[in-house]
Design a protein around this nucleic acid. Structure first.
Lengths: 358, 358
DNA sequence: CTGAAAGCGCTTACAG
DNA sequence: CTGAAAGCGCTTACAG
């Protein structure tokens, strides 16, 4: 027989106070005599009392649950987001419920609705591409569930968001290549329908422009963020009569593809070709040479998202009054990224080597 | 004002029945007249009624929550386990709460206790190394929380578990190398304190033995499952006067390290050296050549774990009667792995090439 | 096959 | 600074 665990009534009885006072102490409300508080705290410890989420939730309307919705579980950022979110949730006394959703499921809205109306999470964290999915957003709004968007395609005026500055990061990493003496710097663009792809391309263009370097259309190739598209793009690029001496792949998976292709072609990296990626995925540091890339502050972004949700920032309820300017700024946080310089980049060598046969 | 969502009372009123009958229909209990059932179902649909988890949990003692505890979020298997678990949970009407824990945190037991006594999950899924941590197990037992261990070091007679057969998988992949004509097959062992490392080593030895191949101690090197340890082990191995022609790294991260080292030394893979790993991590197929490896059926393992928990298999309560033989077998499931043959392995070439200079 | 009552363990709103 | 009462929305026993 599971010996029933202590309830608030047990604590109240033992401490000789009302349950309301126990509740006050446990919830750290002010206005309790410090002696009374101590008294209660001791009994709480002795009985190992822990308020039950279901009872608090039913009575108080707060579930102490935060939801995390994601699509592709293997996407570079999901792991980081989840890690940051669980940790921050624990600190704040919340718990993280995760749900893996297909972005194009026909019953997507219903799946979200089911989860939200059953669990009543106090907030929801959405990752791309779900954070840009109108169906998901509507289901959440209909249920009056606050949410925070991680790296949305566009800042939604009504919904708080957290992201990094893709444009500047891309500009910086391109600048790094330029500062190493590279003139023929190719870019492999990401999936057409993803805004991150567009922003990184913009950053690349900005870097060239600020150095008054002409854009060579031959050095711009379309990819789709997959390893295979990186391989293919690399073959295109490296078969040109005038090879690029550096490639900026819009994410690590594609950069890994470029590296693989270069190796097959017998090109030395970084000797014959410098390569940079974006994301700092686990694989980026498990190849040789390890990739120079950009680390997205995923965990910090997730922590910030949790803070927005539990901190009573209150944004995203959908029925709130129009936010003021300052509120708007607090609602859209941009976090600092980090340039990770490793061994896949080097100064342009004086005389580029010939293609060795593969 | 959030328009209050429908409660069981609303449904009962509209359908002209008692709330108990609504409860029966919603919970799919038998013994309701089919006309009544239809009637209720219609109202449920019209009002978009969904029972609230907190109320069900408080009244019924079931939370419809399953917990997943993990340590290293970047560990190869965590992603797969989580994916399988969320999906199966959704099918079963449950939700997955995740928690990232440090295996050596001083307050580990308390962290587990806090989560469990607050949330009262109906079951808990434990991944290595937490599934072998006595503190964690004790905290769960004290709270009478059923749990399932994923790939535990040893089968616990009282606790259900799900795992794959590491020994046979290692034997098979070693056999693959042997069948390709390799005679000098090195192994890089995994972390000393992990049972998977030991089992894979056993499988390697079994394969050699069944082919009456002598064990060359020089070809057995200690690693610790990290990329760096793979690099280091490879340098040791490849600097021997008699190089191995194939390497079995006990996991993909180390195999990637071997690949990186081989490339630095100017060895062709698989031409000069065949490499196999274990895990089928994302990175394994994002390098060139892609790695031959073993896929662990993580998602299926997680699904099986959820089934054991919600299927009322009832194991793991810690206060149950001693299980019978058949029960014991059902409690310890072993799932089928898969050999993934890619391009990092090839038949032994007639004349091994010399070391090119790096 | 159906229902009336009690109760799960908390918080809210109100009093004092 | 503290407490008595009501109620959150369900399920569990129990009746019939």
């Amino acid at each position: 027989m599971p010996p029933k665990s202590a309830t608030i009534i047990d604590v109240a009885r033992e401490a000789g106070v009302s349950i309301k006072t126990v509740s006050r102490v446990v919830n750290q409300e002010s206005g309790v005599h410090s002696e009374t508080r101590e008294q209660v705290l001791q009994v709480v410890a002795r009985l190992n009392y822990r308020p039950k989420q279901s009872a608090r939730s039913l009575a108080g309307g707060r579930s102490f649950l935060i939801g995390l919705l994601y699509y592709d579980p293997s996407a570079a950022f999901v792991g980081g987001v989840q890690q940051g979110a669980t940790l921050r949730c624990r600190e704040a006394g919340y718990h993280l419920v995760v749900e893996s959703l297909h972005n194009d499921a026909p019953d997507l809205a219903m799946q979200v609705d089911r989860m939200v109306s059953a669990l009543r999470p106090d907030g929801m964290i959405l990752t791309p591409p779900l954070c840009d999915n109108p169906q998901v957003l509507k289901a959440l709004r209909d249920n009056h569930t606050p949410c925070v968007l991680i790296s949305p395609a566009a800042d939604n005026p009504d919904l708080p968001s957290v992201r990094m500055d893709d444009i500047h990061a891309a500009e910086e990493i391109t600048n790094l290549l330029i500062s190493l003496g590279h003139q023929r710097i190719a870019i492999i663009k990401g999936a057409k329908d993803q805004v991150a792809a567009k922003r990184r391309h913009q950053g690349y263009l900005a870097a060239l422009k600020s150095h008054r370097m002409a854009l060579d259309k031959d050095l711009v190739v379309q990819g789709d963020f997959t390893f295979d598209s990186g391989v293919e793009a690399a073959y295109q690029l490296l078969s040109r009569r005038q090879r690029p001496t550096a490639v900026f792949a819009s994410n690590d998976d594609m950069a890994l593809g470029v590296l693989a292709a270069a190796q097959r072609l017998g090109l030395a990296v970084p000797g014959d070709l410098s390569i940079v990626g974006f994301d700092d995925t686990p694989a980026a540091s498990r190849v040789w040479p390890p990739l120079t890339t950009v680390r997205q502050p995923m965990d910090e972004m997730a922590r910030a998202a949790v803070d927005l949700l539990v901190g009573g920032a209150g944004g995203g309820r959908g029925d709130a009054a129009a936010p003021s300017g300052a509120e708007r700024r607090a609602m859209h946080r941009v976090l600092k990224h980090e340039l990770i310089v490793r061994d896949s980049t080097a100064a342009l060598s004086a005389k580029p080597s010939r293609l060795k046969k593969a």
